[in-house]
């Protein structure tokens, strides 16, 4: 397995305020797969994603990526890990407001010794004409494209997407999903996609369903549906 999680526990607060969010998650994801994590609000899917991303620490358990363990490591090592392996896409884009579209992608590219050519990415993302615009001058869909561009510019092994279409309309959502699918196919990037949208399970290689901090269902897909054919 490219990504291995074993007995991941996570709790917030202390003593009587202690709240268990993850209760011993154990699973693995193959390299190049699209993994869709489903579950209702509060099921722990975003927390699990953040732990995989190294921006939150598990209370206990281990995570290995490409055979390397990342749990219990210092902030410096975690930074290196994120730099080498991860790309992050959020529902709210989180672009740097004072940088242009091109510069936001460069923020990602800068971190890699062998980044994807930024100009090529701008073309692939359909943003060439908008490269000199600030995020505030762009639509939600365009901003999310930049966020994806920024995430993949450094050729990460894993692309973590937290509700990437949550703030977008139907048509734009499909365009973004197609883009994620294209990235997966073109660059072989492993994709972990957290969503509420049940329809997205059809585009996954593997589906994890979480409820109350536990994986209640794991489903391997034999026939995937192309993103542009999804309907909901």
């Amino acid at each position: 397995m490219y990504l291995e999680m074993k007995d991941i526990f996570k709790s917030f607060g202390e003593k009587e305020n202690r709240q268990e969010v993850l209760h011993g998650i154990t699973c693995g994801i193959r390299e190049g797969d699209i993994c869709v994590m489903l579950g209702p609000s509060g099921s722990g899917k975003s927390t699990l994603l953040n732990i995989i991303g190294g921006i939150e620490e598990a209370t206990s358990g281990t995570i290995k990526i490409d055979g390397k363990e990342i749990t219990g490591k210092s902030e410096k090592i975690l930074s290196k890990y994120r730099r080498e392996y991860l790309g992050y896409v959020f529902q709210s884009y989180n672009l740097i407001p004072n940088l242009t579209a091109k510069e936001n992608i460069e923020v990602g590219a800068y971190l890699s010794k062998d980044p994807l050519p930024v100009s090529e990415l701008l073309n692939v993302l359909g943003l060439w004409e908008h490269k000199d615009k600030l995020p505030s001058q762009l639509s939600g869909g365009q901003q999310q494209r930049i966020a994806i561009g920024r995430a993949i510019a450094k050729r990460p092994g894993i692309l973590l997407c937290d509700e990437p279409t949550g703030a977008l309309d139907y048509k734009t959502s499909k365009e973004i999903l197609k883009l994620i699918e294209d990235v997966n196919e073109k660059y072989g990037t492993t994709v972990i996609l957290v969503t509420h949208n049940e329809a997205l399970r059809k585009m996954a290689d593997v589906v994890l369903v979480l409820k109350d901090g536990r994986i209640v269902d794991r489903e391997e897909s034999r026939s995937k549906t192309r993103a542009e054919e999804l309907e909901w």
Partner: peptide, 14 residues
Amino acid sequence: AGAISMIKILGYTS
């Protein structure tokens, strides 16, 4: 703070 947090997530060190 948001932008700093984001670039840290991307892998920039403090």
